[in-house]
Amino acid sequence: MTRFGQEALSLAVILIFLMPLVWMLLAAFKPQQEVFIGGFWPSAWQWHNLADAWNSAPFGRYLLNSLLISLTTTAAVLLSSALAAYAFARMRFPLKAFLFAVALGTLMIPGDVLLIPNFITVRQFGWLNSYPALIVPFAASAFGVFLLRQAFRQTPVELEEAARLDGATPAQYLWRILLPINAPVLSALGILTFLSSWNALVWPLVVTSRDDFRTVQVGLASFSSLEGSNLPLVMAATLIVIAPVMIAYALAQKWFIESAAASGLKG
């Protein structure tokens, strides 16, 4: 393909992938009657749509819930994965191969197969409509254990020996040296975990029925079915919901993409 052909094709592809988001953005600021019949641009930009959407459902609360849940889940996954990965990478203990297989085996059992029994478990714990229901089942990740174990194994053993000589305990070595050295892998795992928690839909839908514990995704889904006829408002709500992640993505695109490329190791 010629240089020119490549440039033209790139532009076309960019347009195809971004167009849906552009249409959403424009519809969010159109007067209601223009959504289906008006021109490409809004005849007059209805900036108040954003405020109207914000005020017609507790989006502030939804955002706060999602933020709290995603941050806690991410921290928990990083911690539990780092601890287990350290044991698997650097400690000697009986049943090690078996326990590692137990951890990795969870990759073969997708969450959707477990939707019903986990719902029943969480209900028995009295966790319906609570934060633990949205955090605890996701607080560990076999992928995380696997990824960090690889990284820890590649960190030179001499570092640990030197730290030991200086009197550091294993926990101190892990916290003060091993984790900071492996910050890039940790941040990749962190981004992937945060994204999947922030974007989760079915589980939060099933275990919450009250606004106080709903996430933005469930909030958006129910807002769109309630206010479906007022499309600019629904699109404005969509904009509110995806804005935080999209802004982070625009600022750190390369970081997101490299984290996703790391997930290829999963296979």
């Binding site: 988001l21 839909l201 629904v234 699109m235 919901v241 995806i242 992640v245 999209m246």
Partner: peptide, 16 residues
């Protein structure tokens, strides 16, 4: 652009 929809949530994708 190609990766952007991966970051957009399932719920937002459906609504859009």
């Amino acid at each position: 652009a190609v990766f952007a929809p991966v970051v957009v949530s399932l719920a937002a994708t459906a609504v859009i």
